[in-house]
Design a protein around this nucleic acid. Structure first.
Lengths: 201, 201
DNA sequence: GCAATCTCTGACCATCCAGTCAAAACCCAC
DNA sequence: GTGGGTTTTGACTGGATGGTCAGAGATTGC
């Protein structure tokens, strides 16, 4: 199936990928079953396998699609912009992803947690290259005295950790906060303060 | 099997739990098989099931044991100590756990990621209670003007996120840093700076 | 309308996997 | 060394699960 050609193919492929995202992100690759995915998608299992050759293939399709979405916020960091504003905007975009695409975040987390068996190449290639590039930009900003000196890579890790935590550990965050909280709204203020202080020399 | 009575039982129970930790933390509950665990433990599958009644039970035993280890660093934060030193010491202890017990961290992460199906009670009970208690201590410190005003619960989340990231996302961290790095050693310096700045009003 | 193609399904396999069990092997106190 | 308990195992079972396939049903171009 060289991906969506007809209307029906388009629609069903999307339905399947959405259902698969739901199930994979909640149970991991091994924990997810084709029957579950089919159920959520409202299709029969053989019908899934008419659109995708295997469980592997569905998972792979999700991961591939995911990576771009995931890297976009960092890509968008403008080397010519005002450093503090650029970094804060990056934090905010990343937090928006945790709010709007928590399933994607968990899918990614599951994959990395288990040693990235299906993403190694992408991480060592595309991801590393992008981080190297942006780390260089940050280093320049630091040398120009526009933000405090810090290890730029660990600065990026901190942004990943702090923002994705709210998607990946959602259950825990909510349990600890109790009723009547909007974790991510609160996090926005907290992280703004944190990075404002951290980046000021 | 009311746990270790004889030498053999003692030794084999430990061997099994260690092997199970290895396998569960790497593949998640569903992704792990008894055969794998038996293989790693160097025992036969029926022999595992002589010591533990089920796969569930092994997993449960690990989680129960884990929770205490996991909460100890926060418990050890002294309400009568010097605030900044106490918080920094907590960060360091938590980072030590990521260094010395990465498998435990990943086991925990796997569990929470999948909605904490086997830990809900502990999280809503014990964990929440401890966080409430320590958050109150931090709030007092803030009111006394000894550290900057921040949401204490999100401050704790930030410590969890930043320290556990180095265990849970180890593959990614190493891939991005490349050869010749000791991620956690570097993180220690970074986090020290981060929290020093954050806590200074 | 009708053939060609696309979409869908019930029935089916082969494999994997948690868990059982009867009996063998082992250990140790006497 | 022998008897009673403990530990270990090979062989097995039943259910879940990924995947196949032949054919039925729906669509579409003509």
């Amino acid at each position: 199936m060289p991906r969506p050609r007809t209307r029906i193919q388009q629609k069903n492929s999307e339905t399947i990928l959405d259902a698969a995202l739901e199930v994979f992100s909640a149970h991991g690759f091994r924990g997810a079953t084709l029957d579950q995915i089919a159920e959520v998608a409202g299709l029969s299992k053989p019908n899934l396998l008419y659109y995708f050759p295997s469980k592997e293939a569905i998972h792979q399709a999700l991961l591939t699609e995911l990576l771009d979405t995931w890297l976009d916020p960092l890509r968008a960091m403008d080397p010519e912009g005002e450093p503090r504003a650029e970094i804060l905007a990056y934090v905010r975009r990343k937090l928006d992803l945790s709010r709007d695409y928590p399933r994607e975040s968990r899918l990614f987390a599951n994959e990395i947690l288990q040693g990235a068996p299906r993403m190694r190449a992408a991480i060592e290639g595309e991801l590393k290259a992008l981080v190297d590039e942006k780390a260089a930009v940050m280093t320049r900003w630091m040398e120009e005295g526009r933000i405090a000196r810090l290890d730029p890579r660990h600065l990026i890790f901190s942004i990943w950790a702090l923002t994705q935590h709210y998607a990946d550990f959602d259950v825990q965050v909510r349990a600890v906060l109790g009723e009547g909280h909007d974790p991510i709204a609160e996090a926005e203020g907290f992280l703004e303060t944190l990075y404002a202080r951290l980046l000021t020399a």
